[in-house]
Design a protein around this nucleic acid. Structure first.
Lengths: 255, 255
DNA sequence: ATAAAAACGAACATAAACGAACAAATTCGC
DNA sequence: GCGAATTTGTTCGTTTATGTTCGTTTTTAT
């Protein structure tokens, strides 16, 4: 019997039972343990199963592991930025928070604020603010992106168009030497641009690592941003440019 | 057998019972206390559980306490209902899950399904399914209701109107003797009615406690529901009525 | 406050599972 | 039918998981 048949059946069993054991499968198919191990290795390599000692399980979407790690990266610097940003957010306004670990950090610092209307397309922000008393939370619709809990796509944009924000707080994937905000995901770019368009004032929160990265899609220029919060001095002649653009730059140091 | 299997089950039990004991788990899995201690240490290290003397609990970060208590109420019965419901959900369809602990239980049972498009106005459902591979998740917009993670209001309804679902799985606050579905929140009623209107088929998941309660707003009648999943026989002459309405009733027993 | 009991975690021993390498069997193309 | 390629079985040294023991810490009862 070809391994292809077994693979199909193994997946079927795994879906029904939630798990499979090497021993059990060997018995079921009447083959040796080693054969089953090879099957499971193959399936695990394709990401169809998750190998564990003694068997395998259905994969528990592995994508957000990278995200969780990223989240702990630069945690202190991010918290400092977020604090500075939160300090400049008045009470009694409407604001938008978009996708990214930096905006999530800002959300955590909003605990003490009063009477905010917060709109977000970030599930994590919504979860954080769900425990905060002083603000009403509105979630945009959208397709859930597992990697980072973002809500993107047509639905998100349509929702945003129904609002006008006093303030938008956004993050981005990268920030290049020319002062352009860049993102990995084209879908997300559309959302971000819509946010900028619907906001009276804009804060960008971007730690220094963003300036060492690159990304394909352009969201906007720093010239369209009112204030940039970051954790290290800007490189090259960006400070001068920002001054010319009337873009305030707030640099914080991690404690 | 691998600890990975146990870890998954331990978390599952912890969610249902709210807590786990070393002794109880050791008995449940047929392993020594030390093995369970190691498991709990691992899970605690990952922040998935909070270790306490004699066992472990859900980490305190998880949402609202009143809500959580309600969630652990009837946990086993709910899981049984949810399993029965999930079994009748085919692969490769679009479905809606609305607000309520019962629908969240169903979401947990969708792990093994393939190629589902799940739309929900329940943040908890979205969080649960974010870790499930076999389905794409779309979140409706809406105002976040802290009490239960529900998204309600105009935005939610507008989003739902953009879809047509193969199947809707809904919960309700109460179910009265006449076979009417009732809810505490007028806003939520509008959402639920819109869902019913946009769905080809409808499942209602409601445990027996719903029949002892009352609520002010009427969503619909059982006659508009295809199948009712519950955990105790219906009172009075409801079974006959359901038969006349061609509403199937599935009664499950907690194991 | 103190003693007994329970739970804990570290260290070690044992058993189970693992993967690599090679041999045997089977399948496929010709 | 023959040889090559693929698949499966076998063996064995290595890694991982579990059980056991024991001294320490925490909880409970007095």
């Amino acid at each position: 019997m070809s391994h292809a048949f077994r693979h199909r059946d193994i997946l079927e069993i795994a879906r029904q039972e939630g798990k499979v054991t090497v021993e059990g499968l060997a018995q079921h198919f009447g083959v040796t343990l080693q054969t089953i191990r090879r099957d499971l290795s193959d399936l695990a390599e394709d990401g169809r199963l998750e190998r564990v000692h003694g068997g395998a399980m259905l994969p528990s979407s592995t994508s957000n592991i990278g995200y969780e790690q990223r989240q702990t990266l630069n945690a202190k610097a991010k918290a400092a930025m977020a604090k500075a940003c939160a300090q400049r957010i008045p009470n009694n306004i409407s604001l938008f928070l978009n996708i990214g670990t930096s905006t999530e950090a800002v959300a955590r610092e909003l605990r003490a604020h009063q009477n905010l209307l917060v709109v977000t397309n970030n599930m994590n922000v919504a979860n954080i603010l769900a425990e905060t008393q002083g603000c009403e939370v509105v979630v945009t619709g959208g397709n859930l992106r597992r990697a980072d809990g973002g809500l993107v796509g047509k639905l998100a944009i349509e929702t945003i168009l129904q609002f006008k924000f006093d303030l938008a707080i956004i993050g981005c994937s990268a920030l290049d030497r020319d002062g352009d905000l860049l993102d990995f995901d084209i879908q997300e770019v559309g959302v971000s641009q819509t946010i900028l368009q619907q906001s009276r004032k804009t804060y960008l929160v971007a730690d220094a690592s963003k300036m060492k990265r690159n990304a394909p899609a352009r969201i906007a220029s720093l010239s369209e941003i009112d204030t940039l919060f970051t954790d290290a001095p800007l490189p090259a002649d960006l400070p001068e440019r920002c001054a010319a653009w009337d873009t305030e730059v707030v640099v914080t140091q991690a404690s």
